[in-house]
């Protein structure tokens, strides 16, 4: 999932203060799962903003809506009426969601309420960890299902650096050494010998260094 966290409240308050009518628009998919942008977080933020503006003596009308996904036009359309009734939209979605909503409602300011952080998983309740850099050339099959690009602090593709201690990374001792995880897992699977095989260098043309990437599925185009 895409993991995000809410911006500092002071930054949000400053961003929304020019508007008299504000819609807080939540997203019910990834950012809901990471407790940043579902119905619950929308309600909390709406209450906090109402209290903050009440304290400042400023009248602001805040409405709340959460749609299933802000990165898909079919769901965005459900917000049309609510968006038209407000001066601005504060989107609690990832960067893709914010941009898709802004693209759909061209005449309306759409503001980001979250900082999109990474693609990751919920390792345990309340703990989210980065697992994927979206490099476009997945090698997980070669490293026992552990992404060394996302999880090694030095992004080493050819084995451990030698600096890890007790299975922990020397850059950040709170993190597991990605290569230790690779070796442990491949040992467990009985496939450690595969690491001796030559693998060609990664194809970086598929990474995001060449600007925004696109995928076109001809079979889906009508």
């Amino acid at each position: 999932m895409i993991v995000a966290e809410q911006k500092p409240l002071a930054e949000i308050i400053e961003m929304v203060s020019p508007y008299g009518k504000l819609l807080i628009l939540g997203c019910g998919t990834c950012v809901k799962t990471c407790f940043a942008g579902g119905e619950e977080e929308v309600a909390i933020l709406a209450s906090l903003l109402r209290l903050a503006f009440k304290k400042k003596g400023i009248d602001i009308e805040i409405s709340e809506l959460t749609i299933e996904r802000q990165c898909e036009n079919e769901f965005i359309q459900e917000a049309s009426l609510a968006v038209s009734r407000n001066d601005a939209v504060l989107s609690l979605a990832c960067g893709a969601g914010v941009q898709d909503v802004a693209r759909r409602f061209t005449g309306k300011p759409v503001l980001p309420g979250l900082n999109t952080t990474f693609v990751g998983v919920m390792e345990s309740r309340g703990l989210f960890t980065e697992e994927c850099l979206c490099c476009g050339d997945c090698r997980l099959g070669l490293t026992g299902g552990v992404c060394v690009l996302a999880r090694c602090a030095k992004k080493l593709s050819n084995g451990p650096c030698g600096g890890s201690r007790n299975g922990k990374c020397e850059v950040n001792p709170d993190s597991d050494c990605a290569w230790q995880l690779v070796i442990d897992r491949m040992k467990n699977l009985g496939t450690l010998d595969k690491l001796r095989e030559y693998t060609p260098p990664r194809d970086w043309r598929s990474s995001n260094s060449g600007g925004p990437r696109k995928i076109l599925r001809e079979d889906m185009v009508i």
């Binding site: 409240l9 002071a10 308050i13 909390i44 906090l48 209290l51 903050a52 304290k55």
Partner: peptide, 8 residues
């Protein structure tokens, strides 16, 4: 913490 952050 949030109430402190907004000064409430």
């Amino acid at each position: 913490q949030m109430l402190d952050e907004i000064g409430y």
